[in-house]
Computed example of a mutant assay.
Amino acid sequence: MPPSKTPTLRQQRLGAELRKLRERAGLSTIEAAALLGVNQSRISNIEAGRYAVSADRVRAIARNYACSDQALIEALTRMTGRRARGWWEDHRGQLPHATLDLAELEHHATALRVAQALHIPGLLQTTQHARALFGDAVPPLLPHEVEHRMSYRIKRQAVLYRDPPLPYTALIHEAALRMQVSGPAVAAEQLAHLAEMSEHGNITILVVPFGRGAFPGSGQGIDYTYGPVPQLDTVQLDTEHGSEFIDAAAQLERYTTVLDRLEKLALPAVESRELMCSIAHKA
């Protein structure tokens, strides 16, 4: 089977983690290939996520690399095989690859924690709120492109209703609550939806009020996706040029600290809900 030319983020992450194991073992690609009985290009393709590997091959690699972290090994084996056809694959060719990678990350997550200073998190947006945002995109989206994004957004939100429930924490600055996207009526509907969602057992919505003053981070959107083991956590950042995915240990620790500090600044869940309802009443 030839190598894949378009590996998903999940496939690339598996390869990157196998590369980390090899480097910790102090082995070159040539030495690793000799241990596994394959050529060097096969190792390179595996580590780039371009070549599918089996669970047994991952265990053999871990054994040859002297990795004894069984929790990590088993987590990596669950990432093996050919690309799974999730619902997001229906949008391939219509939406950017990074957009689909985020949906795949959320699908396999064990928990999600997000922070937004100026926007409502995507998984909590109403249809009208999301449509207004897509309508203001730069450069402008064509009508069919807006519909593709709306369909994708609605399907993404289904992750919050799965069984077993996915723990989801949203840290939202008061500024985002007061943004009257598409006018008072849509804004009031959005705030009422947030208050309703905050009553779900798996969903925690915490508001950072204006009165808390300065807050950590640059105000950019942060999506922290928890993996089955801490080594497989991922941060997705919203930028003007698209999504950026981060998995370096030092950076994961940094964003964990930012989210922890934001959570300390936020109002408790009940007070956050009361503030949302108060702003909605005045919208």
Rank of each mutant, 00 (worst) to 15 (best):
R59G: 01
L35C: 04
A249Q: 14
Y51M: 15
C67Q: 06
G122V: 13
A137M: 15
G81V: 10
L18E: 09
L160Q: 08
A280W: 00
L9D: 01
V207F: 03
E23P: 03
D233F: 14
L265T: 08
P96F: 00
A185R: 05
A248C: 01
R10F: 07
P3D: 13
S4F: 05
R22N: 08
A117F: 13
P96A: 15
M79N: 12
S243M: 12
H148G: 00
D247L: 09
M276Y: 08
P143K: 02
V58P: 00
G242T: 02
Q94A: 10
I154D: 09
R83Y: 09
A62W: 00
E147Q: 12
L35Q: 12
A25D: 06
R156S: 02
T80N: 04
A34M: 06
Q220T: 10
E263D: 09
T8Q: 01
L194A: 13
R82Q: 15
H193I: 02
R162I: 12
D56S: 13
H107M: 00
V58F: 04
G15M: 13
Q70G: 05
Y168K: 08
A71W: 07
E23I: 05
E31D: 13
I46D: 09
V159Y: 08
H108Q: 06
P230G: 11
T225A: 03
A48G: 11
R85Q: 13
P140C: 14
R10T: 11
A195Y: 02
E174C: 08
E274M: 14
Q220A: 12
Q220L: 10
W87P: 00
I279W: 07
A170V: 15
A192V: 14
L262E: 10
A192D: 12
R24K: 14
K155M: 10
P184K: 07
V270C: 00
Q94E: 03
L206H: 01
K155A: 15
A137F: 01
P230E: 07
Q70V: 15
Q125N: 03
F215L: 09
P165C: 07
G26A: 11
E199G: 04
P230L: 04
T99S: 00
R131I: 05
P164H: 05
E199N: 07
